[in-house]
Nucleic acid binder design. Structure first.
Lengths: 201, 201
DNA sequence: TGTACATCAGTGAACGCGCGTTCACTGATGTAC
DNA sequence: TGTACATCAGTGAACGCGCGTTCACTGATGTAC
């Protein structure tokens, strides 16, 4: 049953992609290899032809998921120039669709588990976060790059925090209010950001 | 080896308190009953004399941890009147001490696991969150109660998000910058909050 | 108040079960000549 | 280009191991009279 190199590579990519979804749905500890392989249409036995360990899979799936997040924020921001792009990216992130999504932000879906993860996993998460900061900061082009980065750090903190809390709150009305309020407040911050930053100097 | 009612109650409380710490250190899935009982100085066999299941323990430990959080924020805020109290509570929350603490905010330590938890656990988390919102909102007493609640929702989102991200980032310098920047930005928001809220009307 | 018995907190061992990992096997693909 | 052999992707079963849970047992505490 040996497969061609091309098909092997395709299978591997497929495992990573379905694994990236399963991991965000059930968490790192809550996701089994049998489950990931089954979701990819395979049996558990073949897993170790592609990866050294569960940890190696987690690292790759996380990198994949973080890349999706960056791509999605980047393309949302790219629809409008400067701060308007950031506003749009924020509204997309803090949407009901993202709230219910099973392939959303890994910082929300895996946040507390990532903090306890090994060196390699945390490095992947850290690097991806800094890239995300740069994506946002690049759109805050009416202040200096350092000020833009600092501003982006705080915007992302609120985004991740609001979505994390929205996910765990069981009362749908509060959830909706929280997201709406975060969008509103970040909107104000982003619009007034340049002025506030200037004032702060 | 039967113990007196008083001692039984003390033992139970002790299990919940040590369990609340273990749970935040290792996560829900990552914490075993053997480990919790050992941390309390007991053996696993006695566990079911106090709790119906691991889930029941988790619910109680979470409630305990959330109560500690509320008490700590409440007492920090109470040291100063009005918005100054909120500023102080924010700085305490976003401190290096809290970053390294093993008995800190459950929303940060368990966030992504809570979102996947059962009805009861999520209800406990939700109720505690709303109480926390009220604690903060009570100090934003120069705007109406509804505006104060909305403002508190966003402040807490940034606090939880910043601490969650700070915990998972492996670069200590970035972590410190993120916390510092969140403190600074929230400080500005809280100080200008009343004015901004009035403007928004 | 004292006595006899029931209760039950805590121990230590055992139970299924699911997990990550390993392995013998199959047969199509890749390689060497 | 064709042939013979080595490689290896994928299967299905098995492995230890740790987990949540159960249980027989012990002996101090609580209760009934």
């Amino acid at each position: 049953m040996r497969k061609s190199r091309e098909e092997t590579a395709r299978t591997r990519r497929h495992i990573v992609e379905t694994g990236a979804v399963e991991l965000r749905r059930n968490g790192i500890a809550g996701t089994g290899l049998v489950e990931v392989m089954a979701a990819a249409g395979l049996t558990q036995g073949g897993f170790y032809r592609h990866f050294d360990s569960k940890d190696a899979l987690v690292t790759e799936c996380l990198a994949n998921a973080l890349d999706s997040l960056r791509a999605s924020i980047q393309s949302a921001a790219a629809t409008r120039p400067g701060r308007a792009g950031v506003l749009f990216a924020i509204d997309s992130y803090l949407s009901e669709a993202h709230l219910k999504s099973e392939s959303g932000c890994p910082f929300v879906a895996l946040g507390s588990e990532l903090a306890r993860a090994g060196r390699e996993v945390r490095d992947v998460a850290s690097d991806a976060f800094l890239k995300l900061v740069d994506v946002i900061a690049a759109h805050l082009d009416d202040v200096g790059p350092v000020a833009a980065k600092k501003e982006a750090l705080v915007l992302l903190s609120t985004m991740v925090g609001a979505m994390s809390l929205a996910r765990l709150i069981s009362d749908g009305e509060v959830t909706a209010m929280l997201l709406a309020q975060a969008r509103k407040s970040l909107g104000r911050q982003v619009r007034e950001g340049a002025a506030a930053s200037r004032r702060a100097k």
